[in-house]
Amino acid sequence: MSSFNIPDKLITTGNLAENWRIFQQSLNIYLLATGLDKAEEEWKIAILLNLIGEEGIKIYNNFSGSKTTYKEVIQLFHEYCEPKKNILHSRFLFFHRDQEIDEPFDEYMNDIIKLAKDCQFKCNDEAIRDRLVLGTSDKETQQKLVIDGDVTLEAVTTRLRMAEISRKQVAALRPIEQHNIVVNEITTKLINCKWCGKKHEANIKLCPARGKTCMKCSRKNHFASVCKSRQVKNVQQETPCNSLENNEEDNEYYCNNIQKTVSFNQHLERMHAYY
Results as ranks from 00 to 15, higher is better:
45 I>F: 04
119 C>M: 06
17 A>P: 04
231 Q>M: 13
265 N>R: 10
202 A>R: 08
119 C>A: 02
39 A>E: 02
236 Q>F: 14
162 M>Q: 11
38 K>I: 14
46 A>V: 01
177 E>Y: 13
11 I>C: 08
199 K>M: 13
70 Y>Q: 01
248 E>M: 11
233 K>V: 12
109 M>Q: 12
31 L>D: 00
76 L>S: 14
245 E>T: 12
107 E>K: 08
270 R>Q: 11
165 I>V: 13
242 N>K: 12
139 K>W: 12
122 K>C: 11
220 K>E: 15
181 I>N: 08
243 S>D: 06
121 F>D: 06
29 I>F: 13
104 P>Q: 05
111 D>E: 14
92 F>A: 05
19 N>S: 06
107 E>Y: 07
8 D>N: 11
20 W>P: 00
253 Y>V: 10
178 Q>D: 15
3 S>P: 03
39 A>N: 05
125 D>C: 08
125 D>V: 13
270 R>E: 02
152 T>F: 10
12 T>S: 03
128 I>R: 03
232 V>M: 09
110 N>E: 11
155 A>Y: 12
70 Y>K: 02
139 K>M: 10
218 S>R: 15
214 C>Q: 08
45 I>Y: 08
48 L>D: 04
42 E>H: 10
153 L>N: 07
31 L>E: 00
224 A>L: 01
3 S>K: 11
146 V>A: 06
251 N>S: 10
223 F>P: 00
262 V>G: 04
119 C>I: 07
157 T>N: 04
163 A>L: 05
190 L>K: 12
91 R>N: 00
84 K>A: 11
170 V>M: 08
268 L>M: 10
168 K>P: 02
13 T>K: 02
42 E>Y: 14
230 R>T: 14
117 K>I: 13
172 A>Y: 08
239 T>Y: 10
52 I>T: 06
237 Q>D: 10
266 Q>E: 14
5 N>D: 07
232 V>D: 06
108 Y>E: 04
207 C>M: 06
45 I>V: 12
199 K>N: 07
101 I>Q: 03
247 N>P: 02
223 F>T: 00
195 W>N: 12
98 D>C: 15
174 R>A: 03
265 N>M: 09
158 T>Q: 15
130 D>P: 02
6 I>F: 13
161 R>A: 14
267 H>M: 13
272 H>S: 09
102 D>G: 05
196 C>S: 06
49 L>T: 00
2 S>K: 13
253 Y>F: 15
255 C>W: 01
273 A>P: 00
236 Q>H: 12
85 K>I: 00
74 I>Q: 11
150 D>T: 01
100 E>W: 10
252 E>D: 09
69 T>M: 04
36 L>A: 07
74 I>P: 01
35 G>Q: 05
59 I>R: 03
275 Y>T: 07
115 L>I: 03
21 R>S: 14
206 L>M: 15
20 W>L: 02
39 A>C: 03
250 D>L: 13
196 C>G: 03
159 R>L: 15
254 Y>A: 04
155 A>D: 12
34 T>D: 02
69 T>R: 11
81 C>D: 01
168 K>S: 08
194 K>L: 09
27 L>C: 05
72 E>K: 13
90 S>R: 01
193 C>I: 00
64 S>L: 13
266 Q>A: 10
163 A>K: 11
